[in-house]
């Protein structure tokens, strides 16, 4: 499901943006193939959110061009909005409404038939049925993020932007979000995600681009990126469990999606 398909859903060429005198983007180019997961990796302030905002028609670029499914983000903004869904850096949910009402709200705004049914189905899919009638202000961070992503899936947009989807989540909630993202890509959705966590890009992405000081400095698959460094040496190191391994092993059952194989939760102690 990776780069064999030459259909580029997202095309970005020479994107530039500055705020006052601060050059945030200084010529950004990349492509994202249909149905793939593309990770934009960078530290805080690298310009990741600015790229996402330009692609989701919230911000205009100073120079360069970007298109989604062939629609130009600057001149065909409303077609682009039909195609995409944005999950921003902070869970954009309505605190005063229940989870169910949030989903119905988005379904209505997307002018879909039977918003109630759509809301019920998404609550079930994201294990939020029991909490569906509760006000979102009572939700945990992980539940909020799940609801946020559920809201983004309404109307089955072919392209989804996830801006730092797991920032601030506990390890179990992170794994849940990762599984959701993988499921999306398997279903044919093109996913552009930004992250500052290296392991997140490593786990999820078909291609990884590193955005640094307003430019993409490398862009490739994980294997390609690894070849940029000197070849691996064989060393014998005692395999200590990471704190995350320990945490997940102890908390155990909550990490439903450990079937992903991302984290080996070993029973035996070394």
């Amino acid at each position: 499901m990776t780069i064999q398909q030459q259909v580029q859903t997202i095309r970005v060429r020479g994107l530039e943006k500055s705020y006052d005198k601060l050059d945030v983007l200084r010529g950004v180019d990349f492509d994202v193939a249909r149905g793939s997961i593309f990770a934009l990796l960078g530290s805080n302030g690298a310009g990741k959110t600015t790229v996402v905002k330009i692609l989701s028609t919230l911000l205009k670029a100073d120079a360069g061009a970007a298109s989604i499914n062939g629609f130009d983000v600057a001149t065909q903004a409303s077609e682009v909005r039909e195609t995409i869904s944005l999950t921003g850096q902070f869970a954009a949910v309505d605190e005063m409404l229940s989870g169910w009402e949030n989903l119905v709200l988005v379904a209505r705004l997307r002018h879909l038939d039977d918003p109630d049914l759509i809301a019920d189905e998404l609550l079930a899919r994201f294990s939020l049925t029991d909490a569906g009638a509760r006000k979102v202000s009572t939700y945990s961070g992980g539940m909020r993020r799940r609801l946020d992503i559920a809201m983004s899936l309404i109307g089955n947009p072919p392209v989804i932007f996830l801006d730092e989807p797991t920032t601030g989540l506990d390890p179990q909630a992170r794994i849940e979000v990762w599984q959701t993202v993988k499921d999306l890509a398997e279903g044919g959705t093109t996913v552009l995600l930004t992250t500052q966590y290296l392991d997140e890009a490593e786990q999820l992405a078909d291609r990884i681009a590193i955005l640094h000081k307003g430019r993409i400095i490398v862009n490739g698959t994980l294997a390609e990126l690894k070849q940029l460094l000197p070849p691996a040496r064989v060393e014998y190191v005692e395999k200590q469990p990471t704190l995350e391994d320990v945490f997940l092993a102890l908390v155990g059952s909550g990490a439903k999606d450990s079937a992903t194989g991302n984290h080996r939760i070993s029973e035996e102690r070394p």
Binding site: T57, L58, R81, E82, L86, G88, A92, V93
Partner: peptide, 13 residues
């Protein structure tokens, strides 16, 4: 501040 404004603005409304 909550980002819901941006969510709405990125939707086909």
């Amino acid at each position: 501040k909550s980002g819901i404004f941006e969510r709405f603005q990125s939707m086909p409304i």
